[in-house]
């Protein structure tokens, strides 16, 4: 899944006409609730935002689940460290309550811990819920719109110009690298391990050279197009706030906040 494809999906999403501020606010609100809430609420958030992404925005489930599986894979790799504990046989009695399953290995007792399982569950729910919120943003709000929101809320212009240029030229760079890589491969540049290293070195060197050349050309173009020192563009896009989506978002968020609050009260 390359960044280009993600970008294409964001441009084609069915929630495109909603104002980007609404979508960003919604995702941020859910993210904040995720940090405060307990596991059931977090799972509810993950499920709810996934419906927004897959059903309302029309992002293909295969793509979305594949993206989500990256997070799950990271979570799985951290499981052993969380769940498996080892302890000296002599101290076994002190952790007896925490042992779920275990066996003796030499002088040690290796076991799966109740607390570890619980922690892993909490971590998993929180990780999945918060990445689902982030995926909602990157899959429904094109990067250029995020930038224009940042500009409106008063982010420094220099920072935004830099991000804008990077966003434009990262694709040129990727394409150049890709072309070089293909050209090298078609001439057998990556056949052996030694050649592989040599070709990669060439590729990186060439990429630097071409970047410099590109930089010179870009400054010519910018001048030719009347660059005055600050980078300004306009657009005429019209957004349509949707009553139905706003209502669902507000209602859902209120419910989640109430559930979280209730959890705390009951917990005390």
């Amino acid at each position: 899944m390359s960044s280009l494809q993600i970008d294409t999906l964001a441009y084609g999403s069915r929630l495109r006409q909603l104002p980007p501020e609404h979508k960003l606010l919604f995702a941020i609100a859910l993210l904040l609730i995720t940090y405060a809430a307990q596991v059931p609420v977090q799972l509810a958030i993950a499920g709810w935002i996934s419906i927004w992404t897959m059903v309302y925005a029309g992002i293909p489930a295969s793509v979305y689940l594949r993206l989500l599986s990256i997070t799950i894979a990271f979570w799985l790799t951290s499981l052993p460290a969380l769940i498996v504990n080892g302890i000296d046989l002599s101290h076994l009695s002190s952790v007896q309550a925490d042992v779920w399953q275990g066996f003796t290995w030499g002088n040690y007792y290796v076991y799966l811990s109740y607390r570890g399982v619980q922690q892993a569950g909490e971590l998993g729910a929180r990780a999945i819920a918060s990445t689902a919120c982030l995926y909602f943003v990157i899959l429904t709000v094109p990067f250029t719109e995020i930038l224009s929101v940042l500009r409106r809320i008063g982010c420094p212009a220099l920072l935004i110009e830099l991000m804008m240029m990077m966003y434009r030229f990262i694709f040129v760079l990727l394409q150049t690298a890709n072309q070089l890589w293909t050209a090298q491969q078609s001439r057998g540049g990556y056949r052996t391990r030694k050649l592989w290293m040599k070709s990669l070195g060439l590729l990186i060197g060439q990429l630097l050279q071409r970047t410099l050349k590109n930089y010179r050309q870009i400054s010519l173009t910018l001048n030719s197009r009347g660059f005055t020192g600050d980078f300004r563009v306009c657009h005429s896009r019209q957004y349509q706030p949707s009553r139905r989506y706003s209502f669902e978002a507000l209602f859902g968020c209120t419910l989640l906040v109430m559930l979280t609050g209730w959890h705390y009260v009951v917990g005390i």
Partner: peptide
């Protein structure tokens, strides 16, 4: 530069903004 318009050979170098509409507006904004 407003009266003499130059179209470069490689459009990749000429297009600097992120969307088509924004790119066309660039010279006018300048």
């Amino acid at each position: 530069r407003q009266k003499v318009g130059l179209v470069f050979q490689d459009p990749e170098q000429q297009l600097v903004a992120s969307t088509v509409e924004e790119d066309i507006s660039y010279g006018l904004c300048n």
